[in-house]
Design a protein around this nucleic acid. Structure first.
Lengths: 144, 144
DNA sequence: ACGTTACATGTAACTGTATTACATAGCGTT
DNA sequence: AACGCTATGTAATACAGTTACATGTAACGT
């Protein structure tokens, strides 16, 4: 790996141990960011680590999302690391996105999940995955 | 208006009567489609009606969405006409999207909406708008 | 009638997001 | 060594959305 001051893949990972180099770089970048990043944001931050093309980032993101280590925010075309370090989450995950400061709060609500199951059951709809994103102002920014 | 075989704005509108020409064209296109359309899909269908640039479509979509006559599906980068003809809906609107046939089912669930209100209230989060999209297979496609 | 304001429109160029196609490299198995 | 599998590298392209600027048009006040 090219010289770097901050080698995520080398020692900075407390996540899964079997990430590939690019997956480690991308997850490290997301984990250290205080807000969501677009794929191109990630790419820019990783140029000095040798990444050059969007596809390298998208490939890593796909794998990370498969494993639940990262999530995509559809309404932002951006990505975040999973807030649950060892990702024990199941079922629906929702995100509250502050439009002022950009912070994202990830949460799971079993009741909403169940309610969704009821709707789907009644319709015979087979749910594969659900995205739920709330836009607005976090408590901090609403106060200001 | 340039000659056209299918003048939505002229006679085809049962929606609001005060839509502009482009808004009428775009809403007509969405309403006649049996699935979601991207902005560029819409543009292609409206070239013969004189539209030439993406911006013309995006501008119309913005106005239609402001009025609740159209919705954006974030996970698809696509748009649909509101299923409720005169759009009496309030609060959270959810979409079930079939990944097989592409059909979209729009519904509102007050309980989910309320549950969301509880979460937001507890956190001091001021909700501006919520997007909820379920991906999976509709009853028809699940059967096949 | 004239200028002013407000809003809808038209056009081009551009930025940002994501995928396709093809080539290369590493590793475990046989 | 040859094979299959997965990860990588690179370029080119497709798709989505915005910025900047010019024009049209109808309502309003003077």
């Amino acid at each position: 790996m090219a010289g770097m001051g901050d080698d995520h893949a080398g020692h900075d990972h407390v996540w899964a141990d079997d990430l590939t180099k690019n997956q480690g770089l991308v997850l490290g970048t997301l984990a250290h960011s205080d807000g969501p990043l677009s794929a191109y944001d990630i790419l820019d931050k990783l140029r000095e680590d040798g990444l050059r093309a969007p596809l390298q980032v998208y490939r890593a993101l796909d794998k990370l999302m498969e494993r639940g280590l990262a999530h995509r925010l559809e309404s932002l075309n951006a990505f975040v690391a999973c807030a649950d370090a060892n990702c024990h989450r199941r079922g629906l995950i929702a995100f509250a996105i502050c439009e002022d400061c950009g912070k994202v709060d990830e949460f799971a609500d079993p009741l909403i999940d169940e309610r969704l199951g009821v709707w789907a059951g009644a319709r015979g709809f087979a749910v594969a995955r659900t995205t739920m994103e709330i836009r607005g102002k976090c408590a901090n920014c609403a106060a200001a």
